[in-house]
Design a protein around this nucleic acid. Structure first.
Length: 497
RNA sequence: GCCCCCAUCGUCUAGGGGACCAGGACGCGGCCCUUUCAAGGCUGAAACAGGGGUUCGAAUCUCCUUGGGGGCACCA
């Protein structure tokens, strides 16, 4: 039997990082066992439908290189893979349930359901359908139909006994049937609910393993009831623990937040991570290790290594808090491991978005490729690059005198800048080693520590107190531009402030 | 309120009766390297939620308590 698993998002919003992790687990599981990874779109809620969310899901998958074997845009022999295109199937199977006595029409209006719910809350009873229509007489049914009420179809859940299912991660989960109510299977708009569509499709698509989020555990017994009503064999269930907010309090938020103390933005949508300059490889690595582990040592694993070793045994049942700190660290590692040309290619869109055009004017401006060795290990995300390298590609503003000075006096600063300018102007070769040697000599002659005199030069040339390594930067900027920037910095000290 | 799930350093985790006065990683502190910032190296602080069992022996098995999380829609 070949393994067949699915990820089944509903297109009600952009793909969430929690959903992505479920997708990754399914994907790795399928690839490990040489099975099929199916993408099915559960678009049965017409009210919450978001038009471009399907496109977002697909593009997020492509970005992550989670290739699906069956689903939208690739097809497959168990389609269609959009539930909205499978309505006749659900109707057919619903009728079977009605015919076999496992389901019934319910004519209760939304208004009645609302008052019922409020009454139950008032009496501190458990909310749930009171089975009002479960045993309607023919006359009562006729009256409702005559009034033009469009019914829903409900499952006739057993009133006593227990429903048991086996979760691959947690063992037996037993539910008292009296805690289950008669859930809606078919809505009055003719669309199935998740519960019905999910069971029918998993069966028809021959899904062997259902790896889905923890939050589905409470409704699984109802799914089991449906499998039993249809007389179908159940898939293996494995419920994945939830991802918690970084503080460990509650399910990870659906909206981006900003951490008050660190200022770190807490992204939640896959597209946000992408825009913030995280690499898909890092996301895959981090997310897989959030809830699954290989051993007590390994932190960095490639996709191939994950595929080779991923299975249900390594999955933890307890929820896990998302750590942006650790993701940042890991993303930095992946950035550093990227070949220079590859990193440059990744960086270009981020630079362009910041108004930097690294490909323009390469005769007068430096090439991105030359800069990469200087900045590579300073990046945690791609989005940090523009602020670090902008001075290579565009003019800088007038350097701030206080930053230029550092701990020096204005007179000392000016002297250093002037001497630097004249020394660099006479250097036969404008290389990193030559400029460094020259400035170190100069420091010795001035009786200053080298680091002290590098500061004004750095600020003059880069406009920043924190910048890539100075001498490499000088070489890339070139003699003429360095000279111009030194001159402008010196001018700062010619007029009294 | 009712039902369900979970429980090792702040966080992610290793651990499945003796190999553990609990190992790794992120983060945090210190030192080294160093032109700033990083990166890197070394190093330090930091956990078995509590209480009953079972056992010669429990982080590991069991029960209870506590804590945390999730679910109770004509949403998925």
């Amino acid at each position: 039997m070949t393994v067949r698993v699915r990820f089944a998002p509903s297109p009600t919003g952009y793909l969430h990082v929690g959903g992505l992790r479920s997708a990754i687990f399914n994907y790795l599981f399928a690839r490990h066992y040489g099975g099929k990874f199916i993408l099915r779109i559960e678009d049965t809620d017409r009210k919450r439908f978001v038009a471009d969310s399907l496109a977002d899901i697909l593009s997020s998958f492509r970005w992550m290189a989670l290739d699906w074997d069956e689903g939208p845009e690739v097809g497959g022999s168990y389609g269609p893979y959009l539930q909205s295109q499978r309505l006749p199937i659900y109707q057919e199977y619903t009728q079977k349930l009605i015919d076999s006595g496992h389901a019934y029409h319910c004519y209760c209006t939304p208004e009645r359901m609302e008052t019922l719910r409020q009454e139950q809350m008032r009496l501190k009873q458990n909310p749930g359908y009171d089975r009002h229509c479960r045993n309607l007489s023919a006359a009562e049914r006729q009256t409702a139909i005559a009034q033009g009420v469009i019914p829903v179809v409900r499952l006739k859940a057993p009133l006593e006994g227990v429903t048991v299912f086996h979760d691959a991660l947690r063992g037996e989960i037993i539910t008292e049937n009296q805690t289950l109510d008669d859930l809606v299977l078919m809505k009055s708009d003719g669309y199935p609910t998740y519960h019905l569509a999910n069971v029918i499709d998993d069966h028809l698509m021959q899904i062997t393993h259902v790896l889905r989020a923890d939050e589905w555990i409470p409704s699984t017994p109802r799914h089991v009831l449906l499998y039993q009503a249809f007389g179908w064999e159940m898939p293996v269930f494995a419920h994945l623990s939830l991802i918690l907010d970084p503080n460990g309090k509650g399910k990870m938020s659906k909206r981006k937040t900003v951490d008050a103390s660190s200022g770190q933005e807490h992204f939640v949508q896959v597209r946000e991570f992408r825009q913030a300059g995280y690499l898909p490889e890092a996301m895959l690595n981090y997310l897989t290790l959030l809830g699954w582990s290989y051993n007590d040592k390994t932190e960095i694993m490639s996709r191939e290594e994950f595929i080779a070793s991923f299975d249900l045994k390594g999955i933890k049942a307890s929820p896990a808090a998302f750590s942006y700190d650790k993701l940042n660290w890991m993303n930095g590692i992946y950035i550093r491991e990227l070949p220079a040309a590859e990193l440059a290619r990744h960086l270009i869109p981020f630079l362009e978005q910041a108004g930097i055009k690294p490909t323009d004017d390469i005769t007068t401006w430096p090439t991105l490729l030359a800069i990469i060795p200087l900045v590579r290990e300073r990046l945690k995300t791609l989005a940090e690059a523009p602020a670090l390298v902008d001075f290579f590609f565009q003019e800088i503003g007038l350097p701030d005198p206080e930053s230029l000075q550092g701990k020096l006096t204005p007179a000392e600063t000016r002297l250093i800048l002037e001497q630097t300018r004249s020394i660099l102007a006479t250097l036969p070769e404008f290389t990193a080693t030559a400029t460094e040697e020259a400035l170190r000599d100069m420091a010795g002659q001035l009786g200053k520590k080298p680091g002290v005199i590098f500061t004004p030069v750095r600020v003059a040339v880069t406009g920043k107190t924190v910048a890539p390594p100075l001498f490499g930067s000088l070489e890339i900027l070139g003699r003429q531009r360095v000279d111009e920037r030194l001159a402008r910095a010196i001018a700062q000290f010619e007029m009294p402030c």
